[in-house]
């Protein structure tokens, strides 16, 4: 089986709590490998998007989460209406680990996502913006139901 859906929300402060709620329900219903880490990863991605919207001065901007579900995994794509992450930042993150930011007071969010999820990548849109795509395996033997 496969399943997909998209949830959009205005990029205000409440978007974080709203998507936390959706991530918790999705993690439970879809029996991801680690529900806590799935919720944390979605939360971090949404916080990044909200911060980006605030920096751009656009409370009217939209954040969209697209969920793609297969028998094996759940993929989440996080889009906002910001400029997207720069190639330089992506390259810098690729060479960093959480051990490199032990005493830092920021800069853990994307690194936490990479550690929490089974896969994380940046997908380039036709307009050149890069959006975050991340996936987590589902528990073996899941056959549906409310877990």
């Amino acid at each position: 089986m496969w399943l997909s859906w998209v949830v959009s929300c205005q990029a205000g402060e409440e978007a974080v709590e709203w998507f936390d709620f959706i991530a918790k329900q999705a993690a439970r219903l879809l029996a991801v490998r680690d529900a806590d880490l799935f919720v944390l990863a979605v939360h971090e991605a949404v916080v990044n998007a909200v911060k980006e919207a605030k920096r751009a001065g656009g409370g009217s901007r939209t954040i969209s989460l697209s969920f793609f579900v297969t028998a094996d995994d759940v993929t989440v794509m996080v889009e906002d209406e910001g400029d997207g992450i720069s190639l330089e930042t992506i390259e810098r993150l690729a060479s960093m680990t959480l051990a490199d930011v032990l005493l830092a007071e920021s800069g853990r969010g994307l690194l936490l996502i990479r550690e929490a999820m089974d896969a994380m990548a940046w997908m380039e849109r036709p307009d050149g913006r890069r959006v975050l795509v991340m996936a987590m395996k589902r528990k073996a033997g899941w056959e549906g139901g409310d877990g």
């Binding site: 007071e105 920021s106 853990r108 936490l112």
Partner: peptide, 11 residues
């Protein structure tokens, strides 16, 4: 606990 909370703990 998220990355913001971790940063606060580190501070």
């Amino acid at each position: 606990l998220d990355s913001t909370g971790l940063a606060l703990l580190v501070r």
